[in-house]
């Protein structure tokens, strides 16, 4: 008889090192920024701040431009996401289900916007917007941010629509549903969670979008991230930027929680064809 030696699961040291380094790279800056936000005095060479406090929170939140920027950012993200959904979802359905001349080229053109250095593209667009008097306007920023959402809002919903079982739709036709009713009652609910993921991604992505908002929006339109950059660039008080930065974690945190609850991890993976 042979005795089976229990195989001891080996500890993957290399993996642990990689995971630790990665965590450090991600969490490290967050910790530093988070600490700064609650710091009143922190001088070299101390490792921890000499004095903690909420003084800069009061000062930051007391500023009218912060609140204006927050309201503006929320308005922008909402308008852009809604417009993007109205434009992209029907297009995504068409890409997923219909064949028409130029389908593939059009489809990949949505990727093209992300295939080149974005800043160059933005500068070119800014030149055009200048002619159209869109620089420094709300709708100018909406337009530029809309471009940024196209990829998510086309590619993920296309995958979602393609993943819907055609037999389910046929079964609905079979019991008497018109094509429109099938779309409304079967296709959309089936693709729903994944599409919700795309909408969420584009909302959060728009909220944090900086380059376009700054290049097209300045000086009239100042979104939260733009405001934060100007704080960091123009003022030597680090805490203003840190407080804003911590404030900006809130929407993405809420979005993530919402996403986990409503969508479940699988939907994101499905959206990317996983």
């Amino acid at each position: 008889m042979t005795t089976l030696v229990p195989v001891r699961s080996r500890i993957d040291w290399l993996g642990i090192v990689f995971a630790a380094l990665l965590s450090l790279a991600i969490v490290g800056p967050l910790v530093v920024v988070g600490t700064w936000a609650f710091t009143e005095v922190w001088r070299y060479p101390n490792i921890i701040p000499q004095q903690f406090g909420f003084r800069f929170w009061g000062q930051t939140l007391g500023r009218a431009d912060v609140w204006n920027a927050l309201v503006l950012s929320l308005q922008l993200s909402t308008v852009v996401t809604l417009l993007s959904a109205v434009i992209c979802l029907p297009a995504a359905y068409a890409f997923a289900r219909m064949s028409f001349p130029g389908r593939n080229i059009l489809f990949f053109s949505f990727l093209a916007g992300h295939a080149f250095p974005k800043f160059g593209l933005l500068v070119a667009i800014a030149a055009i917007f200048l002619q159209l008097n869109l620089i420094g306007t709300f709708w100018g920023v909406v337009l530029i941010q809309l471009v940024g959402t196209l990829m998510f809002m086309i590619w993920i919903p296309v995958a979602a629509f393609q993943a819907v079982d055609r037999r389910m739709e046929e079964a609905a036709r079979d019991v008497g549903a018109s094509p429109f009713r099938v779309f409304w009652s079967i296709t959309l609910p089936q693709a729903g969670p994944t599409i919700a993921a795309a909408v969420l991604l584009s909302f959060v992505g728009t909220f944090y979008e900086t380059e376009g908002a700054w290049l097209i929006g300045a000086p009239g339109i100042r979104t939260m991230p733009v405001l934060m950059i100007s704080y960091i660039n123009n003022q030597m008080v680090i805490q203003y930027g840190a407080v804003l930065s911590v404030l900006l974690w809130v929407p993405s945190f809420i979005a993530l929680m919402f996403a986990r609850r409503v969508i479940g991890g699988g939907a994101f993976a499905r959206g990317f064809g996983g």
Binding site: D165, R167, Q190
Partner: peptide
Amino acid sequence: FQSHALWT
């Protein structure tokens, strides 16, 4: 249908 095609 073969795959039952129930609406999940």
